[in-house]
Write a protein that binds this DNA or RNA. Structure first.
Lengths: 249, 249
DNA sequence: AAGTGGTCTAGACCACCGA
DNA sequence: CGGTGGTCTAGACCACTTG
C-alpha cells in the first residue's frame, strides 16, 4: 500500500495526518522539493498512505495555514516561497530575563506618584495637557548591579491601584499585564548619552552611552484603542545588549 | 433549527465552519464569554447550527490553533487566557525602510574583498581560524545623509558570487536572502561610541553615540544549520532609532 | 455511564483550471 | 474533459474526565 512505508519513521500511534505532514515536510527539507515545486495532490497522498481524502486534506490545509505551502484550487499545491520578512527582535521582560540566566533580581522604587501630563507627555498619551497620570521610577538590579532604570507613566483609568503596588516583589510591567491586556505596543530603540543623575544611578563610566528603549502600549476601550502606558527603559550601554533569536518560516 | 439564525450576519455562501467560528468569536467579543469560560461543545454547535460534527470540530480546532481557545479532551473547550508574550521589535531592511518613508536610498561600496577569519570572527562563524570569508562594507544613505554603515562577512559556500554583485543597485541583505533562505537569525542591539573613522563616515557629532545592531544568520546544511553571515550595522545614535509596532494576540 | 474532544472514513457536490 | 482543491456529511472508534 503505502509507497512510503519503510521510509517514514515508525508511526506507532502518531495521527495519520501528522504522518502525512511530516512526509511532505521531509520532501522539502531533503531538497527533493524546492519553493514553487508542486507537492503531491490530495488524491496522490490518499493512494500513497491509504488514508481518506479528508485526512490528506487536513495535512495539506494545516501546512498551508502554517505558511509552508500555497494552494490554488483547480491547479495544485506548491511549496511556498520563503517570505522576506523583516527580522524580529524579541524582548523579554527584565525580571524574567535576569531570572532566566540564573541571576538575582532586585528593584528599588525611586518614585511613585501622581503627576499632571505636560506637553510632550500629553501628546504621547493623546490626551489634553494637565491630565493626571501615575508615574513610577524603578531601578532594576541583577545581582546587585544596576541594569535598567524604568521610568513609566500610566493612565489611571486602566490601573487605578497602580500606586498601591509593591514593586520590589513584582514589576510594573507584570502588574500592568495582569490588570490590562495589551492590545498593541510600539517600540523604539536608540542610543543616548546619560545625564549626570542617570550615570550615577546606573553606575556607569564617564563616556559610556546608554541604550534607551521607549515603549507605548495600548489597551482596548469603548471608543477605540487608547494609550495605557508609556515607558522609558535605560540600560548601561557597555554592560547590556538587547538580544533575541528569531526563526523565520 | 439554528438557534442563532437572525443573530448571525447573513451567511449566504460563507462556509459553515466560518459561520461557526464567527459565532463563537462573537460571544467572546460581546462579553458573553470571558477568558476561562466554557464555550459550546461540538455537540451543542451541531445541534444549534445543524452542521455535522466534523464541521463544528474544524471551527473549534482552528480557533484553538489561532490561540483564541484552549481544549481539554474529556472536559471541554474554553476561552483562552490572554498570553503575556515577550514584546517584539520588527526590524525592516534599511533600503525598504528608507523607500517606505519616501526617501531616496543610495549606497557606497567601501570594501569588497576576501579575507581570512581571525580569532573572534572564526569563533562567531564556528569555523577554524584562517578559513576564507567574503567581506563587504557598504555605507547606506538616505537622501544623501549617511544612515547606516554595514559591515558584513559571508561564508563563501553559501554565496559564491557574493563579491561579484553590484551593491549600489541591490543590497547585500537582499542578495543573500535571494540566494540562501535564512533558517535562523540572532540579533543583538547595543549602544557604543564610534571610533574616529566611523564618526567621520556617518558624519556624526563629537560626543554622539552609535546604535550597533549585530546579526548572525544561519542556513540549512546537510550536517545541520551553519552560520552563513555576520553583520554589524552601525547607526548614528542622534539621527536614528530602531522602531517597531507589535500587535499581540 | 455520560459527556467531552481526537481522529478517521467513504462517500458527496461544487467551482475552478488546463489541455 | 479530468484533475485540482474547498467544503460537508453521517456515521464511527477511541481515550479521557467527571459524577
Amino acid at each position: 500500500m503505502s509507497a512510503a512505508e519503510g521510509v517514514e519513521v515508525g508511526a506507532a500511534d502518531t495521527p495519520r495526518y501528522q504522518q502525512v505532514k511530516a512526509h511532505v515536510l521531509g520532501l522539502v527539507a531533503a531538497g527533493a522539493l524546492k519553493p514553487g515545486d508542486r507537492v503531491p495532490s490530495e488524491h496522490e497522498l490518499v493512494a500513497a498512505f491509504g488514508v481518506s481524502r479528508m485526512t490528506a486534506n487536513r495535512a495539506l490545509r494545516e501546512l498551508t495555514a502554517e505558511g509552508k505551502l500555497t494552494r490554488v484550487a483547480g491547479v495544485g499545491t506548491f511549496v511556498a516561497a520563503p517570505k522576506p520578512r523583516g527580522a524580529m527582535l524579541e524582548l523579554r521582560p527584565i525580571r524574567e530575563e535576569i531570572l532566566a540566566r540564573g541571576g538575582r533580581h532586585s528593584a528599588e522604587v525611586l518614585r511613585l506618584a501622581r503627576e499632571e501630563a505636560s506637553g510632550e507627555l500629553a501628546a504621547a498619551f493623546e490626551l489634553p495637557p494637565g491630565t493626571p497620570l501615575f508615574r513610577s521610577e524603578v531601578l532594576h538590579r541583577e545581582d546587585g548591579r544596576p541594569l535598567q532604570l524604568e521610568e513609566r507613566w500610566v493612565l489611571p483609568a486602566v490601573a487605578p491601584a497602580y500606586l498601591a503596588q509593591d514593586y520590589t516583589s513584582t514589576t510594573p510591567s507584570d502588574y500592568l499585564l495582569a490588570v490590562a491586556p495589551v492590545q498593541e505596543a510600539e517600540h523604539q530603540v536608540e542610543a543616548a548619552l546619560p545625564d549626570a543623575r542617570l550615570r550615577r544611578l546606573l553606575e556607569m563610566g564617564a563616556a559610556e552611552p546608554c541604550l534607551l528603549l521607549r515603549r507605548r502600549t495600548w489597551v482596548a476601550a469603548p471608543a477605540g484603542p487608547r494609550v495605557a502606558s508609556l515607558a522609558r527603559l535605560w540600560y548601561p550601554g557597555g554592560r547590556y545588549a538587547l538580544g533575541g533569536r528569531f526563526r523565520p518560516g
